[in-house]
């Protein structure tokens, strides 16, 4: 089996307090470079075709940075990244959605952004609308939709793009139970089709059901990698200890 995503000793840093992007700040920082903040450091892993990886960690651990690098949105500062296949990123559902356009118009734009071709978009249009269960609302402007309806629309486009690699960043928490189930089924179906999944979530139980491998990030470094149950188990335990400590301190 071939490796579909390979991270080799990847680091990503940003310059802290680099000010605004104005001429005076730029000149100032050109003369005195700002200190670096490492969002990721020495991260190496490989995902093979058909595998799925869950990334866990606390807020600010570098999970989203890792996904953004995997998607090709930003380049690593150090190390190399290799990706073979078409990605569909659910980093933020509904990228490019506009409230004044109708659901149907937004579907087309979003599909084009996610990499569908003209003919594919026409072919899958009905399928997308059907999956969203929005019925005739699809011809109403997006600003008349509820948050749940927007999420349904966005998710329906994303799962119908049919990518080689699906990247999901904490987007499964919205929507009602039945739609959530439907999405999960769709993702599992996708997994059984031999596609690759890269997933970030704080819903640890969902992750255990969806993924077979886990990666625990802490302050930009890999703390543990291995079978998802083990990683999630240990992550939970460390959180439990941390929680116990805080509550103990509160009591004291």
């Amino acid at each position: 089996m071939e490796d579909i995503v390979v991270f080799d000793n990847v680091a990503k840093y940003f310059h802290t307090h680099s000010g605004q992007m104005l001429l005076r700040d730029r000149l100032f920082h050109w003369m005195r470079p700002a200190p670096r903040f490492y969002a990721l450091r020495g991260v190496s892993f490989a995902i093979r075709r058909g595998e799925s990886l869950a990334v866990v960690g606390q807020n600010g651990a570098g999970k989203s940075t890792l996904l953004n690098i995997a998607t090709g949105l930003c380049l690593p500062s150090e190390g190399t990244v290799e990706i073979n296949g078409r990605l569909a990123a659910l980093l933020e559902l509904g990228s490019g959605f506009h409230p004044d356009l109708t659901g149907a118009e937004n579907i087309r734009i979003n599909a084009a952004l996610l990499g569908l071709r003209r003919r594919q978009t026409h072919q899958r249009f009905d399928q997308i609308v059907e999956f969203s269960e929005l019925g005739n609302f699809i011809y109403e402007p997006l600003r008349t939709y509820s948050a749940g309806m927007v999420m349904r629309l966005a998710f329906s486009v994303a799962v119908n793009v049919d990518p080689d690699i699906l990247i999901i960043d904490e987007v499964l928490g919205v929507g009602d139970q039945s739609f959530f189930q439907k999405c999960l089924e769709r993702i599992l179906e996708f997994r059984h089709g031999g596609k690759t999944l890269l997933c970030v979530s704080h819903a640890l139980n969902t992750l255990e059901g969806l993924c077979d491998r886990g990666l625990w990030l802490d302050h930009g470094r890999v703390l543990k990698a291995g079978p998802v149950q083990q990683v999630v188990e240990e992550y939970k335990r460390s959180n439990g200890v941390a929680q116990a400590l805080t509550s103990a301190q509160t009591v004291a």
Binding site: G72, D100, L101, I109, A112, G115, L116
Partner: peptide, 25 residues
Amino acid sequence: MWRGDSIFLLQNLIMKDFRIRYRNM
């Protein structure tokens, strides 16, 4: 990495801009 249809996307983005600009005028 992005293997979409640039022309189709370009057309969609232009139409989006056009619709937004003129729907409210």
